[in-house]
């Protein structure tokens, strides 16, 4: 078995510290852990979004590795440039890493991401998914799930939050035949840390999609960020998987799901949902898992 990264073995150094993220922020935990795994050789690129807003408040600069803010749409194209530039000037042992939110990845930055994967640039792209444009005040993104209330998908008598399902970005990325893609969650940091480690060693483009709840946008107490991430996986609305060598692999295959209703109704963004809405979500979940179990490798193995 390979040497796994654990809380004991990960570096004590902090590369994202003193930031101004809200208390209990999931995105900041994802960025902090990603940079701890990658170490001081990481050159991070962050587009407009929470993590650039909370990390760069001149002269208060919370990244201790080299970091730069990109255009909103250009995370992946700037990664391409950073990687080529660092290589051209002879820098050794670096990793160009993108840290972008769900809006900056699935909507605004998807063209640049698609292009970078197509060129197979030697970069790592991490999308921290909090399921809406949280930095600007909770507007719907392409990764907002069905039924979620945001300021642009309100809940009322006629419309019960977001009408459209969450875009399946993991499989969109995999469809490029990328060398490595994975899903993760801050509810399981051991899995997330080791996927970053694995992705950092990939020659070519690697993509990790990590769910990172926003207590403000999801409407949960600030100390429940981790628990809600775990509940999301337990009820089957998120799954841990990898795409490698043209194959999909499920990392965790729960024998039964916990209550989807409990997961949804513990968040104020889903409080308005009626049983019929919850049935739609459960049916979408069941259809997805049927396809996964039929077509993917479901033998649970070490990463």
């Amino acid at each position: 078995m390979r040497n796994q990264i654990t809380a004991k073995t990960i570096t004590d150094s902090e590369f994202f510290y003193g930031h101004k993220a809200c208390a209990g922020c999931g995105g900041s935990l994802a960025v902090r852990i990603a940079l701890k795994v990658l170490g001081e050789g990481a050159i991070s690129v962050l587009p407009a979004g929470c993590m650039s807003a909370v990390g760069f408040n001149y002269p208060h600069l919370c990244f201790s590795n080299n970091s730069i803010i990109s255009t909103f749409a250009g995370t992946a194209s700037m990664l391409t440039g950073v990687e080529a530039g660092a290589r051209a000037v002879g820098i050794k042992n670096f990793k160009a890493v993108g840290l972008a939110g769900d809006g900056g990845t699935a909507d605004i930055g998807i063209q640049a991401l698609s292009g970078a994967i197509d060129r197979n640039d030697d970069i790592l792209y991490i999308c921290y998914d909090n399921e809406a444009y949280m930095n600007t005040g909770i507007q719907k993104s392409g990764l907002t799930p069905f039924g979620a209330k945001t300021t642009t998908t309100p809940s009322g008598e006629n419309i019960h939050g977001n009408l459209r399902p969450k875009k399946n970005l993991f499989e969109i990325v995999a469809a490029h035949d990328i060398p490595y893609a994975a899903t993760a969650s801050i509810g399981n940091l051991k899995d997330f840390m080791n996927k970053i480690e694995k992705a950092s060693k990939i020659k070519g483009t690697a993509y990790i999609h990590v769910v990172a709840p926003c207590p403000i946008g999801w409407g949960i107490p600030v100390n429940e960020t981790i628990e809600i991430s775990q509940k999301m996986m337990d009820c089957g609305l998120w799954y841990l998987a990898e795409y490698e060598n043209g194959q999909f692999k499920l990392n965790r295959n729960p024998s039964e799901f916990s209550s989807i209703k409990d997961y949804l109704l513990s968040q104020s963004r889903f409080k308005h949902l009626e049983d019929a809405d919850i049935k739609i979500l459960a049916a979408q979940r069941d259809a997805k898992w049927t396809t996964i179990r039929k077509n993917w490798n479901t033998a649970e193995e070490d990463l």
Partner: peptide
């Protein structure tokens, strides 16, 4: 005033303890 917003990495000037 600085000419740009680029600066030394890991340079903190304010605490967050008042948030608690």
């Amino acid at each position: 005033y600085p000419l740009g917003t680029a600066s030394e990495a890991g340079y903190l000037v304010t605490k967050n303890s008042g948030w608690r």
